[in-house]
C-alpha cells in the first residue's frame, strides 16, 4: 500500500535539488536510500519527514508517527544519558523507555554518562537509540553508520528487525551499502535531480548478479554531472 506518492520539485535558494522527480513509498518496506554526495539524500529524508515545508499530494503519515534521525544531532553536553531519555519520554508520545534501556545495555552505554563524555560513535548510537525508541510508522534514518564499530553495527540491524512489523516503514540513507543491503527490500537510488530509481534489492541480485553495492558503483560511474 502506498503511503507517500508525489512528483517532487524542490530547491534551496542556490540549488535545484529535485526537478519533477517521482517518489513512491510503500507501507511495510525497508528502503535503502543511496546516492552520491550532495545528490539530496538528506533533503529527501527531510522532505518525507515533513521537516522541510512541502505540500505533498499524498502523504498518509501524521507528523507524530514519524521518527526522524538527522545525521548531525547534538544535545546539551551537561545532560546525562538518562536525563535525555527521560526528557524524550516526557516530551514525546509513544517513547518507550523500556526499549531504550534494553538497548543501552546491549550497546554497553552507562545511563549515568554525561553527553559531553561520549565519543563520536557513542553519540551516533544514542541518536539511533532515541530514533528507534519512538513508536512510529515511518522511520527516517540519516547515515547511522560512520564512527560505529562492527559489533554495534550488528546490534543496529537487529534493532531494526526487532522493531519491524508490517505497519512500519524504514528509510535508511547510507554510504555503507553492504552493511544494510541484506536488510533492505528496496533500494532508492538518486541518479539525478530528475530520476530516483526504486528497485527491489533481490531483483538487482537476480537480474544482473550484482550486490547492491556493486550495482551502485556500476550505475553511478556512467552518470555524469556530479
Amino acid at each position: 500500500m502506498e503511503i507517500i506518492k508525489d512528483t517532487i520539485t524542490f530547491m534551496y535558494p542556490d540549488k535545484l535539488v529535485f526537478n519533477d522527480v517521482d517518489v513512491t513509498i510503500n507501507k511495510g518496506e525497508i528502503y535503502l536510500l543511496i546516492g552520491r554526495n550532495g545528490t539530496g539524500k538528506s533533503t529527501l529524508l527531510r522532505l518525507l519527514g515533513k521537516i522541510e515545508p512541502y505540500k505533498f499530494k499524498k502523504h498518509l503519515i501524521a507528523e507524530k508517527d514519524i521518527s526522524y534521525m538527522p545525521s548531525d544531532l547534538s544535545y546539551y553536553p551537561y545532560m546525562r544519558i538518562i536525563d535525555l531519555l527521560k526528557f524524550y519520554h516526557d516530551t514525546h508520545q509513544n517513547f518507550s523507555l523500556e526499549f531504550a534501556h534494553t538497548y543501552l545495555e546491549e550497546f554497553q552505554l552507562k545511563p549515568n554518562k554525561m553527553i559531553k563524555k561520549l565519543s563520536l560513535g557513542e553519540q551516533k548510537i544514542l541518536n539511533y537509540l532515541i530514533c528507534l525508541s519512538k513508536e512510529a510508522k515511518l522511520y527516517l534514518i540519516d547515515e547511522p553508520f560512520p564512527y560505529v564499530d562492527l559489533l554495534n553495527d550488528e546490534i543496529f540491524r537487529k534493532m531494526i528487525i526487532n522493531k519491524y512489523d508490517e505497519e512500519k516503514t524504514f528509510i535508511i540513507a547510507t554510504h555503507q551499502i553492504n552493511e544494510f543491503e541484506k536488510l533492505a527490500s528496496y533500494c532508492l537510488l538518486i541518479k539525478s535531480p530528475e530520476t530516483i530509481e526504486c528497485i527491489p534489492t533481490d531483483e538487482i541480485r537476480n537480474s544482473v548478479s550484482l550486490s547492491v553495492e556493486d550495482y551502485f558503483k556500476e550505475v553511478m560511474r556512467d552518470v555524469k554531472g556530479y
Binding site: 511495510g28 518496506e29 525497508i30 540491524r157 537487529k158 528487525i161 519491524y164 541484506k182 533492505a184 527490500s185
Partner: peptide
C-alpha cells in the same frame, strides 16, 4: 519469521 530474520540479518519480508 522474526527469529530467522535476526539470525540471518535479512529482511523479514524475504
Amino acid at each position: 519469521i522474526r527469529e530467522m530474520a535476526i539470525i540471518l540479518e535479512v529482511n523479514p519480508n524475504t
